[in-house]
Amino acid sequence: MDMTSRMASHFTDAVQAFEDSRTALVDPLAQAVDLMFAALANNGKILACGNGGSAADAQHFIAELVGRFERERLPLAGIALNVDTSIMTAVGNDYGFDEIFERQVNALGQAGDVLVCISTSGNSANVLRAVGAAHERDMHIVALSGKDGGVLGELMTSNDVHLCVPHDRTMRIQEVHILLLHALCDGIDALLLGDSE
């Protein structure tokens, strides 16, 4: 395959990943918007976590909530659990890397809050432990994963929403995750600002 064809194949593959995700994820995406809006409307907050590219996505999502998405509105309560290097290195050093999100959920999470956890494989140990801590605190989970959902999918309850991208390549899963996060922001804003569209 020549380089031009190789580059073109990325677009073809991405379009298919987006189409498959639209079919599979529109309904749970709408459920996730409702879950997050309910938390925010009841003085709750959204916590988010992930590793690597998923950490960047978690931080990006929270920035859209606290700052703004496309329109002016009041800031929304959100915390990215992967941005405080002092907490992450202290907990990682003293307790282990697997506890860096769990301890923050235990410190900051309250009943009715939402934990957005992002893991392309669904098998990140520190994310899984954060889910366990969130469930113990009667929080809801919105999980973004891919492939077969991994262990993360098995941890979801009827009170949670699992947005599992139906694709096996990490890059495609991450690309769809960005779309899902932007769609969540748009949905929350639509409910906050009373859009009827």
Score class of each variant (00 low, 15 high):
Leu144Gly: 05
Glu99Leu: 11
Thr157Leu: 14
Gly132Phe: 09
Val33Leu: 01
Arg172Thr: 09
Arg22Leu: 04
His162Asp: 05
Phe101Met: 06
Glu72Trp: 12
Phe61Gly: 04
Ala48Phe: 07
Gln16His: 07
Leu179Trp: 05
Ala17Lys: 03
Ala41Lys: 08
Phe101Leu: 05
Pro75His: 03
Phe11Trp: 13
Ser21Asp: 00
Gly96Glu: 03
Ala17Arg: 03
Phe61Thr: 01
Ala48Gln: 04
His135Val: 13
Asp148Gln: 04
Gly194Cys: 12
Met139His: 07
Leu184Trp: 03
Ala80Asp: 02
Gly122Ala: 10
Gly132Leu: 11
Ala30Leu: 08
Ile173Met: 03
His140Met: 05
Ala55Ile: 05
Val83Glu: 05
Val127Ile: 15
Pro166Asn: 00
His162Tyr: 04
Gln174Asn: 15
Ala190Trp: 15
Ser119Val: 03
Glu99Asn: 11
Gly96Tyr: 03
Asp2Val: 15
Ala56Tyr: 05
Met3Asn: 15
Ser9Leu: 12
Val151Ile: 10
Met88Lys: 04
Arg169Val: 09
Ile178Leu: 14
Ser9Asp: 14
Arg137Met: 09
Met36Asp: 02
Gln59Arg: 02
Phe69Pro: 01
Gln31Ala: 10
Asp160Ser: 08
Asp57Met: 08
Asp20Ile: 01
Gln174Thr: 12
Ser54His: 11
Asn106Thr: 13
Glu64Arg: 12
Gly187Ser: 10
Leu192Met: 12
Ala111Asn: 04
Asp94Val: 13
Ala183Glu: 02
Ala38Asp: 11
Met3His: 14
His10Gly: 14
Arg172Leu: 14
Gln16Pro: 01
Glu136Cys: 09
Ile79Pro: 00
Val161Gln: 01
Pro75Asn: 05
Val161Ile: 12
Val151Trp: 06
Gly67Phe: 03
Gly132Asp: 14
Ala48Gly: 09
Glu64Thr: 04
Ile87Ser: 12
Val131Thr: 08
Arg73Ile: 14
Ala107Phe: 09
